[in-house]
């Protein structure tokens, strides 16, 4: 542990713990996942930064979407995201989640992922190399430090609009809203 970090630990242990214990749920939507094994195994060893893969969203706080998002997987992504407890951070990995990438003209691929769930950080590239993942992680740390990794807060604040976008795509989502709207009037306005 760095000596200059000790003060930070004493000042705000919760934020520091959030930073250094990123338990990641990798949503293996496309080819991007191929870069994750080198990240977490012997060559680059993400565990030294406290990053660990977990199996269910209930246990994690980092949501990595690796690869293109088709219409069908988007539904699963939304549900998994909503099942993850706060605070949680979302990182989209590769060019496909950013703007569709090489599937820019596909009828079935989502081009604007942040219309449906809030994204805290993007890692560009096709594929991004493992080094890029670590640069992304250090950027995420900075964001957490500055309090700007606030995707989950934005999601709860603008839930009505996110939900509307989701429902425009799917019709009925099949599960009740995560944040029930405050008043019927607001619902009507939405």
């Amino acid at each position: 542990m760095d000596r200059n970090q000790l003060a930070k630990w004493l000042k705000s242990p919760v934020e520091m713990a959030n930073k250094y214990s990123l338990h990641a749920v990798y949503f293996c939507t496309g080819c991007g996942i191929i870069e994750i094994p080198p990240v977490i195994t012997a060559r680059w060893d993400a565990e030294r930064f406290g990053i660990k893969a977990v199996a269910t969203p209930r246990q994690g706080n980092l949501f990595m979407i690796t690869g293109y998002v088709s219409l069908k997987t988007l539904k699963a992504i939304i549900r998994t995201y909503e099942q993850m407890p706060d605070p949680k951070y979302t990182v989209a990995f590769g060019s496909c989640p950013i703007n569709g990438g090489m599937y820019w003209d596909s009828y079935n691929t989502i081009k604007h992922l942040d219309k449906y769930i809030p994204i805290d950080g993007w890692i560009a590239g096709c594929m991004p190399r493992p080094e890029a993942v670590f640069i992304g992680v250090t950027h995420l740390w900075t964001l957490i430090d500055k309090g700007k990794a606030d995707g989950y807060i934005r999601y709860s604040k603008n839930y009505a609009s996110y939900r509307r976008n989701q429902e425009m795509l799917f019709g009925d989502l099949g599960w009740p809203p995560l944040y029930p709207s405050e008043s019927p009037a607001e619902e009507a306005r939405a």
């Binding site: 949503f27 209930r58 997987t73 549900r79 998994t80």
Partner: peptide, 15 residues
């Protein structure tokens, strides 16, 4: 904790 319905459980993103 937040109380959730029993049906709301993780099954790889689907219900």
């Amino acid at each position: 904790g937040r109380a959730v319905d029993q049906e709301d459980s993780y099954a790889a993103g689907s219900a």
